[in-house]
């Protein structure tokens, strides 16, 4: 009986997992309460900085409020688009690399937080109690790594295409690795502890996440190039704060 249950489990996993690529958001109620609270506490200072930056922007330029709202809607729509993955299935982007490069990491973390609430309530992906952990992995870790990498590549004189590709790909992979770390911390392997658990979580999510990260990188290059090529109208001061980088 046990054998049949296990076979049915692996069959269902094989059938469903590659087809739905939202798997990297930790689902509602999955984390124990202590972990949910700790990730929220760790997240708060970054959100506070992001919130302060947004307030300053909105005070100096009231029109930016519209842009922030619409930018969050854009990131949401971007994350809802199905990307044809290299494995033959379809997956969803995080949009974190592009948003970090366009708006900066602190603002991007707040926008990611808003997008994650909408994903929970409109798409039933992620959750409210796991919002802190998900926002940390996607909005903070993903955004900061993507932005740092883009800055580094532009400073080194590499082409923008390479910069944006690396930012989006590595930003996506960082989100995935931090989530695997969060899960491994919450559920260490009963036999070998944290690291085995981390490797196991990395392993199961790698099937969808590595091809997805590469595809998101390629997609971000096309999006970025088209936006920069058509920047005569619609480019706002929020984006222009780093305009030098986007010329």
């Amino acid at each position: 009986m046990k054998k049949y249950v296990m076979i049915a489990y692996f069959f269902a996993a094989g059938l469903l997992v590659p087809s739905v690529g939202y798997a990297m958001h930790i689902m509602e109620g999955f984390l124990p309460k202590e972990h949910a609270v700790v990730w929220l506490i760790i997240l708060l200072p970054v959100l506070f900085i992001g919130y302060k930056q947004i307030r300053e922007i909105v005070t100096c330029h009231p029109e930016q409020k519209m842009l922030l709202g619409l930018a969050a809607a854009f990131i949401f729509v971007l994350s809802a688009l199905k990307i044809p993955s290299l494995t033959g299935s379809c997956s969803h982007a995080t949009g974190v690399g592009l948003s970090a490069v366009l708006f900066g990491p602190a603002v991007s973390s707040v926008l990611s937080g808003i997008v994650l609430v909408f994903q929970a309530l409109l798409l039933a992906h992620g959750g409210i109690t796991t919002w802190g952990a998900n926002t940390f992995s996607m909005g903070v870790a993903g955004s900061f790594v993507a932005w740092g990498l883009f800055k580094m590549t532009t400073t080194m004189g590499l082409s923008k295409k390479v910069g944006i590709f690396l930012a989006a790909t590595v930003g996506d992979l960082t989100t995935y690795m931090v989530t695997a770390g969060q899960l491994a911390l919450a559920f260490p392997d009963p036999v070998s502890g944290f690291w085995t658990s981390f490797v196991k979580f990395i392993g199961v999510f790698a099937i969808t996440q590595i091809p997805l990260a590469v595809c998101e990188g390629l997609l971000s290059v096309v999006v970025y190039n088209t936006l920069v090529d058509n920047k005569e109208r619609g480019f706002s001061t929020l984006w222009r704060q780093d305009q030098g980088e986007h010329e």
Binding site: S19, F30, F187, D189, V191, S192, T196, V204
Partner: peptide, 15 residues
């Protein structure tokens, strides 16, 4: 989908 993916590493241990 998430449960199927995330419960797998919890059920199977390695050493």
């Amino acid at each position: 989908t998430f449960l199927l993916t995330a419960l797998l590493p919890l059920i199977v241990s390695g050493s």
